[in-house]
Design a protein around this nucleic acid. Structure first.
Lengths: 133, 133, 133, 133
DNA sequence: GTGGTCTAGACCACG
DNA sequence: GTGGTCTAGACCACG
């Protein structure tokens, strides 16, 4: 099983957000493919030593964003990719995410070049995107 | 005075955080030099139309992190530069932030090129870092 | 105050969903305008005799859908209208909502004509939409 | 046999609910007449590739609501038509459902005309109701 | 005082 | 066994 979630309780990033981020990463990187089943809410909660509601909150957000599909009584699955957001909203979200990153990077004293290089390097670890209409 | 803070209330980023970030930026970019005096908490609060507790919270964090020095009865001044994080820790934090961004971008269906371009564009809006570490 | 929420505990519709629906209705009908402040999560929870988490869940969904904006320490406000979803997603959501309605209506033994008439009549109670690009 | 059930597993609507709805539709539209026999739970379950408990649950609800009659050792049959809800109650339920739909549609930025058209189009996909009440 | 997160634990709906 | 909802109650972050 390539899919693995690691929680850092010391972090100021909420647990449910860490879960969301890691599921998204697993999908973006190809570790989880369309149709793959995720561990059940209760099972993952037990594994991470967190409350099941916290996992449920994370899964819920992923379902609402069209990343996962949950089938009652069966579990949660990686959803078929679809375009949920408008072009403007996608831009808005990308911009917000970039702002978060650049602030962090500059506060950590990385130069523009170092940051760009690190992003490019990270992207090489991901499969090239096949864009859909 | 080159030092200028701009607050966005619509943002998800807490106001005090925005102030902290911008002071650090001003120092990193050289707009504020070691020994420079900052506006007082009250003055800055008035200028930004925010609660003075919010400004105080930002200044407190900056003093705690050794970025500013508060001299009793005189105000706050830019402190001599220190390095807070180890190289490894800086790398680790940068990597986590980049992972979150790239996953988000790819799930939003942006290509590698579009993402890099958007990051570069965002960086152009910031002052070039003059490293002193 | 035109804004009023009424909860039916006997219903099979979850409480948080009833809250979501009624806030959306209040906005769509013009009872709540852009920038209006909503009752606080705790206050509304007390008024409705439900747990504050239930109200928070409803508000959260509304924020995620771009209907409300919450400002930390201040409260929740009706957000400026923006196009969050792609055309395909809007269609998907409309279709799902219509399917729900038509099933209900036909099971209740209303004819096609009666249903269309009732929808048209309801729309007359709403302000005519000013479409934005 | 005109009676046919189609299940959509991707839908949010529970499978048992889909079965219930479609049986009621078949009766309302005249595809199934009073006294007609339905396929057995096991047979229908096999045909739909669903758990037989799911079909049983649907049939149970239909029997409970007086839509079907179960004759021991023989199977399930379409019962003589009864009216379950008062006119006022039917109106109340329809109105609630319409309010939810119209709010959703308007917040999704559909015009009155687009909504009415979409509802009409959806209805055309259904058999015309032959009222017997 | 405001919203955000989390836990512990319960009960329901579905298959 | 699976996810969904809800409560009671706690503690934190923000202004």
């Amino acid at each position: 099983m390539v899919f693995d979630v690691v929680i850092s309780t010391g972090s100021n990033v909420p647990i449910y957000r860490q879960i969301v981020d890691q599921v998204r990463h697993a999908i973006a990187s190809g570790d989880l493919a369309v149709g793959d089943q995720l561990p059940s809410v209760r099972v993952l909660a037990e594994r991470l030593l967190v409350n099941h509601n916290t996992v449920a909150k994370a899964f819920n957000e992923l379902v609402r964003d069209g990343v996962l599909e949950s089938r009652h009584g069966l579990g949660a699955f990686v959803a078929k990719r679809r375009n949920v957001f408008s072009t403007a909203e996608r831009r808005r979200r990308l911009d917000a995410a970039i702002t978060t990153l650049t602030s962090e990077a500059l506060l950590l004293d990385f130069s523009h070049e170092e940051l760009l290089e690190a992003v490019a390097k990270k992207l090489n670890g991901f499969p090239k995107e096949k864009r859909k209409a």
